[in-house]
């Protein structure tokens, strides 16, 4: 499964109530918000601290199904917020 990382020009803010993550891109100047179904702050925190992640990690951290996670990943890729981890 493809390993991904947040692009170097992004900045993440995980909300302490577990409601989700806001991502700022200093490349596009845009902000994007990821909603978490799990509302688990610890889970979000550890997700954002992962050196890299795959579809399953995203599913587990946000509490979404595979199809949804795939859509989110595609959207993040299109908006250049995440990129493939080096060497993959």
């Amino acid at each position: 499964m493809r390993r991904l990382i947040f692009a170097p020009h992004t900045k993440l803010s995980c909300f302490s109530d577990g409601s989700g993550v806001a991502i700022y891109s200093s490349y596009t100047g845009d902000t994007l918000m990821l909603h978490s179904e799990l509302r688990d702050a610890v889970m979000l925190q550890s997700f954002s601290a992962l050196p890299d992640f795959n579809l399953t990690d995203m599913q587990n951290s946000l509490g979404i199904d595979a199809e949804e996670a795939d859509r989110v990943i595609q959207y993040l890729l299109d908006n250049q917020l995440i990129i493939s981890a080096a060497g993959c």
């Binding site: 909300f15 109530d17 409601s19 989700g20 806001a22 918000m33 909603h35 509302r39």
Partner: peptide, 11 residues
């Protein structure tokens, strides 16, 4: 209100 919603509204 959850923080994510408030973040969106405020920004």
């Amino acid at each position: 209100l959850d923080q994510l919603d408030a973040f969106g509204q405020l920004s």
